[in-house]
Design a protein around this nucleic acid. Structure first.
Length: 832
DNA sequence: CGGCAACTAA
């Protein structure tokens, strides 16, 4: 009864006040409703407020309380004016309510002004204002806490929950330890609110053990405390403990709510317990939490990460009023899981809904554009984000740069990069990766050195891309310098960087260092193993490659398609017929990997090398679809070795059907005719080459010495040390002739005398590079030469002789592989 | 008059 009367009285007060007409509009100052402005009240506005008779502090406070309940800011402000004009009339209790009204209405500067102008303040005033600013935390809020303490106000539980939340928002949870001391002294530890806030602060900075200690001290743990502890475990990777605490909580009779469930889904993901997640999903449906924004998004996370994107889609469609987060989430996950069309479709659908895309949405849909190479859509979105100013977000501009780079318009990316005011390391990476993908390796390295000059921190992406550029340029010394940079910046143990190092060393001809880089990796992944296996195979060290594969099988890293490309090519290099066939069968039967064109190529090459040409042809006939040019080339190579003219002609024909301008095929064909003494055919090949205007790619060999790359073409005389080089060549010529070398004139396809042929052979680019290496490096140190074409047959013979005479290891990387010449033998076994 | 716990992302 009493309550009824009281509430009727409250209603009457409210009605009375609001019915004063001049409160709502004043013709003099245009002050209509204080709601319309969030600025501080002007003197004039205050003067316009008529005096409300008989308004004592108690009534005022009650009225303001009502304003908070009804969200009636306008009346609250009006009352504020009244009290300002009256020069008082509210007590501290009332002022605090008004302060709270401003905070709840998010009028923070008004709140701050009121706080400073209030006649007096107590703990509640401080707590209220600090909470108001906790969303935008800065030092000012901490200062307020210090002031509260210094002015001697009561340090109650509210103060600590508020300040702890502030610390979490400021991302300095570790400072909680200091506050913990005061809390302990004042005996607030057992309070559930304080305890949970403290627990959360410790959790936010990863101090799980301290969080647990705090939790144990809470005397009456409520559901929120339990949930806080579960969340702490889930967020810090203690997924099992999260579940253990959940069951303890259930045994005490507490029911999980949306907070608890969201954390449990995170734990499910961490444990990869998708089935548990599904049963929790059932629980979510039963408790009607399915539409909760947090719970639904954690479900989306669970299903997309466990690659059940269809289940995620079903959850997504069930969310009734989707805000930007679920939309962005799904678009992002579609973009990342190679379902770019779906991402774009969803984006278009989103545009017809009330949800407004933000920078995350655009970054994701641009990522999809980049992957698809959809320049048209990319440009449209570029215009749009520019219009709404979202291109200022670094992630959006990076995604735009990526779109242009992936569509081949690298200059547009560079322009965007230059204009962008917000750059980060990802912006640099995008440009570097873009250039690497477009085979602009020099440009990638130039950008990297600009990046170093700008003092931008490199990341694993930077290092792996520039190392890839080094590998393709075969610049060992630059690669080694970058290696030392990775050590300095503590990136050498990063598995992605280390994999790139293996590849770089292997491709630059230093297989021993590749192995050292491999050995350094603690958590080797499939890429590490593949890089090492194919590295060995590339260097003709087939047995070593197979040993690697057998080591790999003892780990829990699963071999993939590329692993078997390495393994089978190793078998082919060494000529291990039975092993090769066994691995090929095992790949299909034990590892369920369908053979791809590269696998067939390796097998054809393996059969071919051992002279089993019938088997090779049989296998080619088994290939589903059209055999690739690589397959035919492998067969042609085999025919050259085993002098099968008929099959050789056929395979050369197939190669030239697919690549009519392939010079090396003409050379092989001609060699084959020459060794069969079919001179008319040799002439025919030559004529054909002329008629089809086969572009002869100029042969180029290069060698790196003290950071400088020296290039040589055939008969090159431009090098500054050319006299020394020719002197060395002459000496070598004499020495190897004495050792039994006979010139192979058939290699030269020109119609000239044999003497001239011999002279032409002696100025081949690889020989010039070798001679330069011999005169410019100390004796005994290995020489690494790169060539852009296949090494010439005669040079191959010569290099074997020279390696024995000068007692040096000579490494030649031609377009296909590495040749290690040592003591008169080549690692390729004369088959390549 | 004031308090504790949860979601995406290049």
């Amino acid at each position: 009864m009493i309550i009824r009367l009281y509430s009727r009285y409250r209603t009457r007060v409210t009605t009375n006040l609001l019915s004063i007409p001049s409160l709502n509009h004043c013709s003099q100052c245009g002050f209509s409703s204080p709601l319309s402005t969030s600025t501080q009240l002007t003197r004039q506005q205050v003067n316009c407020i008529p005096q409300i008779p008989n308004l004592d502090a108690h009534t005022g406070a009650r009225f303001l309380q009502n304003c908070i309940i009804n969200g009636d800011l306008a009346s609250g402000k009006t009352l504020h004016c009244h009290f300002l004009k009256a020069g008082g009339g509210l007590d501290l209790f009332g002022w605090n309510i008004l302060l709270n009204l401003y905070v709840k209405s998010e009028l923070l500067s008004d709140a701050r002004n009121l706080f400073d102008e209030m006649p007096s303040r107590n703990t509640v005033s401080f707590v209220t204002i600090i909470q108001g600013f906790s969303e935008f935390p800065d030092v000012e809020s901490v200062k307020l806490f210090v002031r509260l303490h210094r002015e001697g106000h009561e340090l109650n539980a509210y103060v600590f929950t508020t300040v702890l939340k502030l610390l979490v928002n400021m991302e300095c949870g570790e400072l909680a330890a200091n506050v913990h001391g005061i809390i302990y002294k004042l005996g607030h530890c057992s309070n559930a609110f304080v305890g949970t806030a403290l627990l959360d602060a410790y959790s936010s900075c990863g101090c799980v053990r301290m969080a647990r200690e705090v939790f144990d001290c809470i005397s009456c743990k409520d559901m929120v405390s339990w949930t806080g502890m579960i969340t702490c475990y889930a967020e810090n990777g203690y997924f099992k403990d999260a579940f253990c605490f959940f069951s303890q909580m259930r045994m005490l009779g507490f029911n999980p709510n949306n907070f608890t469930l969201a954390s449990l889904f995170k734990a499910c993901l961490g444990l990869e317990e998708i089935e548990v997640g599904k049963s929790l999903h059932a629980c979510v449906i039963k408790t009607c939490y399915e539409t909760d924004p947090y719970v639904s998004v954690s479900l989306l996370d669970l299903y997309t990460k466990s690659s059940d994107i269809e289940a995620a889609r079903r959850v997504f469609e069930e969310i009734p009023k989707k805000d930007v987060i679920p939309w962005s989430f799904m678009i992002a996950r579609y973009s990342q899981s190679d379902r770019c069309e779906e991402a774009v479709r969803l984006f278009c659908r989103m545009r017809r809904e009330p949800a407004v895309p933000n920078q995350f949405t655009f970054a994701s849909v641009l990522q999809a554009c980049a992957t698809m190479g959809n320049l048209t859509l990319g440009k449209q979105i570029h215009c749009h984000v520019q219009k709404v100013g979202l291109d200022l977000f670094v992630h959006v501009s990076n995604a735009l740069m990526d779109v242009y780079a992936k569509c081949g318009l690298i200059n547009n990316s560079i322009e965007l990069f230059r204009e962008s005011e917000n750059k980060n390391e990802v912006s640099w990476n995008t440009l570097i990766v873009g250039n690497v993908n477009l085979l602009n390796w020099d440009m990638a390295l130039t950008l990297f050195s600009d990046m170093l000059n700008d003092h931008v921190q490199s990341t694993e992406v930077t290092y792996s891309s520039v190392l890839c550029a080094c590998a393709n340029l075969t610049v060992l010394e630059t690669g080694a310098q970058i290696h030392s940079l990775t050590i300095k910046t503590l990136f050498e143990n990063n598995v992605i960087v280390a994999n790139a190092l293996i590849d770089m060393y292997a491709k630059c001809g230093n297989i021993k260092h590749a192995r050292l880089a491999f050995n350094m990796i603690r958590q080797k992944d499939v890429v590490s193993w593949n890089a090492m296996i194919s590295g060995y195979s590339m260097h003709g060290l087939g047995n070593e490659a197979l040993r690697m594969f057998n080591m790999m099988r003892k780990t829990n890293v699963k071999p993939d398609q590329l692993t078997f490309v390495g393994v089978l090519s190793a078998c082919s290099n060494v000529g291990l017929l039975n092993e090769g066939e066994a691995y090929f069968t095992s790949m299909v039967n034990d590892y369920s990997i369908e053979p791809c064109m590269e696998h067939y190529t390796c097998m054809v090459s393996l059969f071919g090398k051992l002279g089993q040409l019938v088997k090779a042809v049989d296998l080619i006939n088994q290939i589903p679809g059209e055999p690739s040019v690589m397959v035919w080339r492998a067969l042609l190579g085999a025919c050259v070795i085993h002098k099968d003219l008929e099959l050789g002609e056929l395979s050369a024909k197939r190669v030239l059907e697919l690549e009519p301008q392939d010079e090396s095929t003409y050379v092989l064909l001609s060699n084959m005719y020459a060794s069969a003494k079919r001179w008319d055919n040799v002439a025919l090949v030559r004529k054909n080459m002329k008629r089809k205007r086969v572009k002869k790619e100029p042969g180029l060999s290069w060698i790196e010495n003290q950071g400088i790359v020296h290039y040589f073409t055939v008969g090159d005389s431009s090098h500054e040390d050319i006299r020394l080089i020719y002197g060395m060549l002459e000496w070598l010529n004499l020495r190897i002739k004495k050792a039994g070398y006979v010139c192979n004139h058939d290699v030269i396809l020109l119609d000239v005398e044999d003497d001239e042929k011999a002279r032409l052979l002696w100025v081949h680019s690889e020989r010039l590079a070798l001679a330069f290496g011999l005169v410019s490096t100390p004796s005994g140190c290995p020489i690494r030469i790169m060539k852009n074409l296949r090494i010439c047959l005669d040079c191959h013979v010569v290099f074997k002789f020279i390696s024995k005479i000068v007692k040096r290891e000579i490494v030649v990387r031609d377009i296909n592989r590495f040749h290690h010449f040592e003591d008169g033998v080549c690692s390729c076994g004369d088959y390549w």
